[in-house]
Nucleic acid binder design. Sequence first.
RNA 1: GGCGCCAUAGUCUAUCGGUUAGGACGUCGCCCUUUCACGGCGAAGAGACGAGUUCGAUUCUCGUUGGCGCUACCA
Length: 482
Amino acid sequence: MIVRTRVAPSPTGDPHVGTAYVALINYLFAKKHGGKFLLRIEDTDQARSTRESETAILDSLHWLGLSWDEGPDVGGPHGPYRQSERSAIYQEYVQKLLDAGHAFKCFCTPQRLEEMREAQKAAKQPPHYDGLCLTYDAAEVARREAAGETYVVRMNVPQEGVCVVDDTRRGPIEIEWRTVDMQILMKSDGLPTYHLANVVDDHLMEITHVIRGEEWVSSAPKHILLYRYFGWEPPALMHVPLLRNPDKSKLSKRKNPTSILFYKAMGYLPEALVNFLGALANSTAAGEEELMTLAHMVERFDLMHVALGGPVFDVAKLDWLNGRYLRERLDADAFEARVAAWGFAPARMKRIAALAHPRIERMSDLGNLCGFFFAGRLNYPVELLRAGKLDDDALRAAFALAQAELDLLREYDLAGIERVLKGVAESLDKKFRDVVRAFYIAVTGSPTSVPLFDAMEILGRDVVRERLRHALEALGKKEKTA
RNA sequence: GGCGCCAUAGUCUAUCGGUUAGGACGUCGCCCUUUCACGGCGAAGAGACGAGUUCGAUUCUCGUUGGCGCUACCA
């Protein structure tokens, strides 16, 4: 048997380090066993998926040195590798389930479902589809369909017995069928949900080992049931732990930078980041060199040694590793080249120079004026934030709101940034200039600097988010008023 | 709340019943050094709790506690 693994990111946001972590484990396992590693884009959520995000994910994983044997950008014999291009396939398989009575059409409105869940919650019952539409006979279903009622397709789930999920690393996990909801397989827009698309694709793409995040354990029975319904041999399943924030919660950009783009922008080397992630999966033994190439990681990889506790993404250790790569693995020329490529690319320098040009008296002003473009955490006194007309509460509100709004921005560009900051000033009922002043400090470290929106655009969403987070941190928690 | 997963120092981990519980990051100290950093040497620091099995439990079982995940027409 040829081992075939995959990573299946959903292009709904920044390329997440967690995606890279899971991708790396799948990659290492496949390569270790002379198999294939594929990349599939799970973009069945029309509302949230974007091409920009997909591109960023592919670029980021490539940047880390990962490559796939089959995928949307390189093709392969099992394509297309983008789920949005596989609708006809899912339609076909949903019909099979429908024909066999393993799935049914559900005409319940979102409102009814909402009320049902509320009632169940109030009655201390676990939220669960009540099976109303399962009681309709063929004539009733036909009548409703003819009347133009929209419907989704739900999976018919047995209500008795237990499902044993055989996790390669954890052993058997028993989950009672009655705790498994009658999952929607196909949404009213005709596109499949994760569960259906995932199973169909993994089968069609001949995936032998599904190695994925821990968040999927509880829905594994649904997937196993689908394999059973289709009469397919399920792949080996294994769930790896989720990366954590320092406080042990699931890694989130609220508390910790999660975007690969951020680490790139901060001047981490891809080989250091991928080494760090790999060391989280398979730690080094006593006396073993911690600096490892991808090839070396492949060689020593052991799936059974992936620890089960959720590891904290320890930036301090990443810093140490990155420092060693920078100092020990790059000679003077290579270092210079990396630095140039990192922050001094011609296009970037041109923009920065143009911003500085009108505000300069001596070229030596450049350092103070533009240093923040090449910095990580800014070291300004917190008093500077407070020097403006906004009090602490207003500052906190402004930064927090901007953080959220900037994240929601579809296109992170000049116009969008301006819209967000104007919106922040408006909703706080503060003068735009007073609000902007605070952002100057948070983003550039100084009240007098190059144009803010340009600076924010050049720095990128991730670095800006981190600087706002830092400002929020510097201000401290809201004081309890006596 | 229900269901599930997890549990060795601040953090990442090794240990496949018998170890002075090993390593790495971080922290602290000493050395090197015009400063700092790097580097070298060293130190402090851990089996969540309670039962059980066993000659012997960090390791196996159960319970408690804690953390996390899931509980969407998101993945």
